[in-house]
Amino acid sequence: MPNVVLTVDCEGAMHDRCYTSEYIKILEEEFVPCTWLVHVSMKDPSANTNLYYHEFIHKIPSWHEIGMKVNFEGERGYIEDPKERGNIMWVAKDTLKSHLIKCTSFRAGAFALTPSDVRYLEEIGILVDSSVVPDSSYRMFVDWTGAPHNPYHSDRDDLRKEGQNRLLHLPVATSDGEYGYLDKRWDTLESLYEANSGCEVVTLGMRDYMDSCENLRKTIRYFRNRGAHFTTMTQAASEHYEHHRALAAV
């Protein structure tokens, strides 16, 4: 079985309910690490950073990981200009750094990562990204049809192709147009898990403002019963590097 990476999109400050405490409790009981991707947008850059810094960071075990999630949006809507997008990423980095959080993992809101973003991510120290949803029916801003399902380094001009970018992509697990977020029906998730059982890494997502507690427990037990290994995004990237370096040396 593959490595399994669990992630949470941390946007609770923008919603009426936040299930982070429940998720932490389950993950501690099951002794499973997670990558918490703290959401930053120009509408209110520090809202979620403040929420997590004051309410949850001290409760999240040190063997978990804190990363960043950036929504490329402003008062006028979705932002396409590369320089503006780069500025948002620097603001996100500085906002989290001001709360003693140094990130190496990243996800773009709405999975809207573009080729021009990669240079900025590499500049601010991001090592691993999970914005790719290969062959998913979700195509609001970016169509990821044809992208790899396994971890890969992308091409400078087309992120759906393999290339020489330093940034490593961990695609979100997908099947039959569905992408692997735990707020879906269990039968949908179970079918998706089976379809991805041969992948090197199965990356899955949760939203802190949606109740995925039952499916989180089921997911952990599903993969644990099959001998899977749970890890964070950055650790998965490290293991990917070590594995492929070892193969190259043979």
Score class of each variant (00 low, 15 high):
5 V>C: 11
6 L>S: 04
7 T>K: 02
8 V>C: 09
9 D>L: 00
9 D>V: 01
12 G>D: 03
13 A>D: 14
15 H>A: 13
15 H>G: 07
17 R>V: 14
20 T>A: 10
22 E>A: 15
23 Y>M: 12
23 Y>G: 00
24 I>C: 12
28 E>W: 06
28 E>I: 13
30 E>R: 12
30 E>G: 05
32 V>M: 07
34 C>P: 03
40 V>Y: 07
44 D>K: 11
47 A>Y: 07
53 Y>M: 06
54 H>V: 10
55 E>G: 09
56 F>D: 02
57 I>W: 03
57 I>D: 10
61 P>C: 11
63 W>N: 14
63 W>V: 07
63 W>D: 08
64 H>V: 07
66 I>F: 10
71 N>H: 14
72 F>D: 00
73 E>M: 10
74 G>K: 03
76 R>F: 05
76 R>C: 03
83 K>P: 00
84 E>G: 02
85 R>S: 00
86 G>D: 02
88 I>T: 01
88 I>E: 00
89 M>F: 08
90 W>F: 10
91 V>G: 06
95 T>K: 06
95 T>G: 10
101 I>H: 13
103 C>S: 15
106 F>V: 04
106 F>E: 01
106 F>I: 04
114 T>G: 01
115 P>N: 06
116 S>M: 03
117 D>P: 06
120 Y>G: 04
121 L>A: 03
122 E>P: 09
124 I>Y: 06
127 L>F: 14
130 S>K: 02
136 S>V: 03
139 R>T: 12
142 V>Q: 00
145 T>N: 00
146 G>S: 00
147 A>V: 01
147 A>N: 00
149 H>V: 04
152 Y>Q: 02
156 R>L: 13
157 D>C: 07
159 L>M: 06
160 R>N: 05
161 K>N: 08
163 G>F: 00
173 A>F: 03
176 D>W: 11
176 D>L: 07
177 G>R: 09
178 E>I: 09
179 Y>R: 09
182 L>N: 10
183 D>S: 13
183 D>P: 08
185 R>I: 05
189 L>W: 04
189 L>S: 04
199 C>E: 11
202 V>I: 14
205 G>L: 03
205 G>I: 00
206 M>N: 01
207 R>T: 09
207 R>C: 06
208 D>L: 04
209 Y>G: 01
211 D>N: 15
212 S>I: 05
212 S>A: 14
213 C>F: 06
217 R>G: 08
218 K>V: 09
219 T>F: 07
220 I>T: 05
220 I>F: 12
223 F>I: 04
224 R>H: 13
224 R>L: 03
228 A>V: 10
228 A>G: 09
231 T>G: 06
231 T>A: 07
232 T>R: 02
233 M>E: 03
235 Q>F: 08
237 A>H: 12
241 Y>F: 15
249 A>R: 15
250 V>S: 14
